[in-house]
Design a protein around this nucleic acid. Structure first.
Length: 890
RNA sequence: GCCAGGGUGGCGAAAUUGGCAGACGCGCCAGACUUAGGAUCUGGUGGAGCAAUCCUUAGGGGUUCGAGUCCCCUCCCUGGUACCA
């Protein structure tokens, strides 16, 4: 393959402008209080999900979202906003640590190298980040504040009466450690022997680690937990005010898994002698089926099993519990089809009918949800039904599809296979609630339980507390020391607490973190030792969007003034303006002042973070908000997920298929502007779509046409400004397409429909391509519109126009976004479609001012209409102004 | 299983409140300019048919003067999730 002639000299233009932008910090966003800060401008905060700087470098998926946000950023700047558009690095993480284990190279070195590589690549795409705000989560000046926030969490509790996080000093109880938002618990954790660490539930997929796919087993260990469950209610409720895709909100709601129901207390029947009374509380969402409860099941791990098991069953129960404990999570779910369990010899009393029912244990009941015990209603629960079938337990129907009388005065439970129906209906065989529909029956039963002291209304969540410690080296150390078996916070003055330099990063294998190997570091004082766990990778990304507001502040995690402006600022939001509302006064007005709970105006990233990162960040944000550090209750107002880019073969890009596209290769051949525009032209941002090199070529041809619209090549092969550009007014047709383009591009950027914005600009360029004379004003408008998409090309052409026409309007990036005139878009004649019986038959052109009756008359006079309606009666004529006439005949 | 999002030419895709289906681009065909074309420009391009005309938005039904768009059923694809009581 020989040296290919470039369609336009992007290889000279692009590095030139990139160097220029770098030199003069063209996209620096000044903070309140700085000399060049303009307080009259509204703020706009546009954030990308920052990358983990892996050794592989950038792939085409990264720049998709980044290009989208860059376009919006450049556009918003021209609309007169102070735009905060930063980039940084999620720099702690397992790959660097594993590389260190293999090679001995310190993760800090690897990370530094990878960051440098990523940064060079991002700059080569021409993104308008404010690089002065660059941050890395692994930088001590950053994680010092991550540790500081942890201490805020540690020193807080959730006050149920205010539903807020408050300083621990407001807690009046005797044991503050029992209510802290960060606490230590000995919990059964997901231990991954291969990785030598525990993992959060969210990091375990099908019983294997999300990273590496290694087996994970349950094992009790002492761990740091964050009390995210206290915020469950607010994390659900406060989604409402956010402009997120409904699907993502739903994903979060499901993850939190709020269930309304009742706790019902069953009394255990005392057997003999010294038996103390015991109660078993179960959680149910179907209190209305209480009469159908024919047995109870305890989770094998439930401590109540010890007290309740009858002596004669003890041996069998112990064996079963051991069997269950030996199973990994994978096995336990894999063997889901065949249920196992064991009668423990004891009985409990159903409070509603005083019936004695047997108590079983079974591993399909888990300890981590509800009370670790259930009432089994086999007639109306699929799982209980399977279990009852297998162990020949009684089944009693208590819900019918329609209102009807009971099965009999004394409803006998049956073991014959009846059909299991889990839907709602009407209560039967349930004296207190017979005939009532499910919801009313539930309400009545719960009221009865409450009155008689047998239970109460209850709300449970699937969400568990966040397991926050990891047995790793490359993460934030906890600012905690242990003294006499008790934890205490390190004073703030000791932050940042950096990890010791290790030579050997290998996991100890015992569950002891690598930091335990640093004996000197470990010893805090004579009597106190440091915590050796580190924080999970999520920690740094929980608050990075806050640090971007004030990244070099040495006194505070973010300065108050900066926070109030960038996070608390109210004058944000997406609005489309036309010429009528384009004055600066109206532009800064916010139509819905307090309706936006989120601080970041636009947040773009992949769906893979739909629950974890976004939930954790919301949680931290709410704690800091409650403690008075932040002005708004939510971090991200508008969230958009970009779709994945597939390989040319339609498969997921991977080394395995050999279909990986390297952005730098594309840029070398077609230029960064073409790369950016193609990524946006491919299709809707949120959609999954395959890459196409032919498509890149097409977009590259479009940019070359823009270039040749204003430049022509001399005999000697030099590019010179086209003499066809003149300072004349565009004609009517040109003006119309120009204003139509301004309108469409403006609206499409606001809607993030970049593909259709580019289409419209192609139409504009095509309209001017053959014009003998190109009006200067139109060319300038085109360049401004295209600038957010193709910043290098448009900057160069703008400069060339400036040189010749000499008007001192400044650089293209200083221009204000053009307004359009709606009046110019209106035709004075309009084409009307004529349909007969809904089928297109002809078109006519009528003046815009034509009345409905005139249009109708014109349509009926149409020869084609005559032809088709001969011998038929015209039943109806539908006239849609400016659109069509439909003649109904039969 | 369940939940969510999708199915429109040979391909990527457009299509305010229901109102000309296929904008724009790719590919393909033809022409122009050229020593040349893998450059550029011009025209054509959903399918069938010589034509008039007919058919066409996964498939089937419905509402409507009129449906890619609204309602019901079925099929297929993608993502998430799975004993959560």
């Amino acid at each position: 393959m020989g040296e290919r002639r470039k369609p336009y000299p992007f290889d000279q233009i692009e590095p030139k402008w990139q160097a220029l932008w770098d030199e003069c910090c063209a996209f620096r966003a000044p903070n309140p209080g700085e000399g060049d800060f303009d307080p009259s401008k509204p703020k706009f905060y546009i954030l990308d999900m920052f990358p983990y700087p892996s050794g592989a470098g950038l792939h085409v998926g990264h720049p998709e979202g980044y290009t989208a946000t860059d376009i919006v950023s450049r556009y918003k700047r021209m609309c007169g906003f102070n735009v905060l558009h930063p980039m940084g690095w999620d720099a702690f993480g397992l790959p660097a640590e594993q590389y260190a284990i293999k090679t001995g190279q310190h993760p800090a070195v690897t990370t530094r190298e990878n960051i440098a590589k990523f940064k060079t690549q991002l700059k080569r795409i021409g993104f308008s980040y404010d690089w002065n705000r660059e941050i890395s989560t692994a930088d001590p000046e950053y994680f010092r504040w991550t540790q500081w926030i942890f201490l805020q969490i540690y020193n807080s509790w959730f006050n149920p009466s205010t539903q807020k996080a408050e300083p621990i000093s407001t807690y009046r109880g005797t044991d503050p450690d029992s209510v802290r938002l960060a606490y230590v618990a000995n919990v059964a954790v997901n231990w991954c022997p291969e990785l030598g660490t525990v993992l959060a539930n969210e990091e375990v997929i099908d019983g294997k680690s999300e990273v590496g796919g290694f087996p994970v087993v349950r094992r009790p260990m002492r761990q740091w937990m964050l009390r995210i469950t206290a915020f469950a209610e607010r994390l659900i409720a406060e989604l409402d005010g956010l402009d997120w895709p409904e699907g993502i909100k739903l994903l979060q709601r499901n993850w939190i898994g709020r269930s309304e129901g009742a706790e019902v207390v069953f009394r255990v029947v005392p057997s003999s002698e010294s038996e103390t009374d015991a109660d078993i509380a179960v959680f149910t969402t179907r209190a209305d089926t209480l009469y159908g409860a024919t047995y109870l099941i305890l989770a094998p791990e439930n401590p109540l099993v010890d007290q309740t098991t009858r002596p004669e069953k003890r041996e069998a129960v112990t064996a079963y519990r051991e069997e269950v404990a030996a199973k990994s999570d994978l096995e336990r779910t894999d063997l889901a089809k065949e249920k196992t369990g064991l009668f423990i010899g004891a009985y409990a009393v159903n409070p509603v009918n005083s019936e004695r029912i047997p108590i079983w244990i079974a591993d399909y009941v888990v300890m981590g949800y509800g009370t670790g015990a259930i009432m089994a209603v086999p007639a109306h629960d699929e799982r209980d039904f399977d279990f009852a079938q297998k162990f020949k337990l009684p089944i009693r129907r208590v819900v019918a599809a329609e209102v009807r009388s009971n099965d009999g005065a004394n409803p006998a439970a049956s073991t014959r296979p009846v059909v299991c129906t889990s839907g709602e209906g009407f209560a039967i065989n349930s004296p207190l609630i017979d005939g009532l529909p499910t919801s009313a029956a539930q309400a009545k039963i719960i009221a009865w339980l409450e009155q008689n002291g047998h239970g109460r209304r209850d709300v449970r969540y699937k969400l568990r507390d966040w397991l926050f410690s990891r047995q790793r080296y490359w993460g934030e150390p906890f600012p905690i020391v242990w003294r006499d078996g008790k934890h205490e916070a390190l004073p703030e003055s000791k932050l940042p607490l950096t990890a010791p330099d290790l030579k050997d990063f290998k996991p100890t294998g015992t569950g002891e973190p690598p930091l335990a190997k640093a004996k000197d570091w470990l010893r805090y004082s004579e009597a106190a030792f440091r915590e050796t766990n580190t924080m999970p990778q999520w920690a740094g990304s929980c608050w990075y969007y806050l640090r971007f507001c004030d990244p070099t502040n040495n006194d505070r995690f973010v300065g108050e003034e900066a926070e109030r402006y960038w996070i608390g600022g109210e004058s944000s939001g997406f609005r489309v303006r036309s010429s009528e509302s384009s004055s600066p006064e109206t532009r800064t007005l916010n139509p819905e002042p307090l309706s936006m709970p989120g601080g970041v105006d636009l947040y773009v990233g992949g769906t893979e973070h739909a629950v974890l990162h976004l939930l954790y960040a919301r949680f931290w944000h709410k704690v800091l908000f409650d403690l008075g550090y932040l002005s708004k209750p939510e971090p991200f107002q508008r969230l958009v997920n970009q779709g994945m880019i597939l390989g040319e073969d339609g498969r997921k890009m991977s080394k395995r298929w050999g279909n990986v596209i390297d952005p730098l290769d594309v840029i070398a051949e077609y230029g960064a502007d073409a790369f950016r525009c193609y990524e946006m032209f491919m299709g809707p941002l949120e959609q999954m779509k395959p890459w196409s090199m032919k498509g890149v070529e097409g977009v590259s041809r479009f940019l070359a046409r823009v270039w040749r619209l204003m430049m022509e090549e001399s005999q000697a092969g030099h590019w010179l400004l086209s003499p066809e550009i003149e300072e004349i007014a565009p004609d009517k047709r040109e003006l119309k397409v120009l204003h139509a383009t301004v309108k469409k591009v403006t609206e499409d950027i606001e809607a993030l429909s970049f593909n259709t914005a580019i289409s419209q600009m192609m139409i504009l360029v095509n309209a001017f391509t053959n014009a003998p004379v190109k009006p200067l004003s139109a060319m300038r408008t085109l360049l401004v519109l295209l600038n957010p998409f193709a910043p290098h090309l448009t900057s160069e052409l703008w400069q060339k126009l400036q040189l010749k026409f000499g008007e001192s309007e400044g650089a293209i990036t200083d221009q204000s976004w053009p307004a359009y005139d709606e009046k110019l878009l209106v035709e004075d004649e309009v084409e009307i479609v004529i349909q007969v019986n809904g089928k297109l038959r002809d078109r006519i052109v009528v003046p815009l001012t034509a009345s409905e009756s005139e249009v109708e008359a014109a349509a009926l006079a149409n020869p084609k209409v005559h032809e088709l309606t001969i011998g038929k009666t015209i039943r109806k004529v539908v006239v849609v102004p400016k659109k069509l006439v439909n003649i109904v005949a039969s």
